[in-house]
């Protein structure tokens, strides 16, 4: 059984990921909070950071492409400025731009 993650643990994890990849985190406080609590719930239920906005098969192997940061994030951020769930964004992403759901790249 994995150790349960706190909100702060998850925030530290996603901050580290964003810095390592040259991205930034969603700057909308409510959205960021929703995303972090979603990831936290997924980790504490499944044992891994399943994308909060994608449906899990509750199997690490089957879900490996949608474990945060998902396999599609880099390309989505290049093409749209943010990833599918909007957690990670391009450093120069214009925060005044309204966020819309982007197409699902997952087959």
């Amino acid at each position: 059984m994995n150790k349960q993650k706190s909100y702060e643990d998850v925030k530290e994890y996603v901050t580290r990921i964003s810095i390592r990849n040259g991205w930034k985190l969603n700057s909308d406080k409510e959205q960021l909070d929703d995303l972090i609590t979603g990831l936290q719930a997924n980790f504490n239920r499944l044992g891994y950071y399943n994308c909060p906005c994608r449906d899990s098969q509750e199997d690490h192997q089957l879900d490996r492409d949608i474990i945060c940061p998902c396999r599609y994030a880099e390309q989505d951020i290049k093409d749209y400025g943010y990833c599918y769930c909007t957690l990670y964004q391009q450093l120069d992403f214009d925060i005044s731009r309204p966020l819309r759901m982007i197409p699902e790249r997952r087959p």
Partner: peptide, 28 residues
């Protein structure tokens, strides 16, 4: 909806703000 999904939470908030009666199922 998916209970952890930010877009789904936005959707529920939008319906609440509009004051609509609705039903939902968190499939996860």
């Amino acid at each position: 909806t998916i209970s952890t999904c930010m877009w789904c939470k936005k959707a529920k908030r939008w319906l609440n703000r509009q004051g609509f009666q609705y039903s939902y199922l968190d499939i996860d």
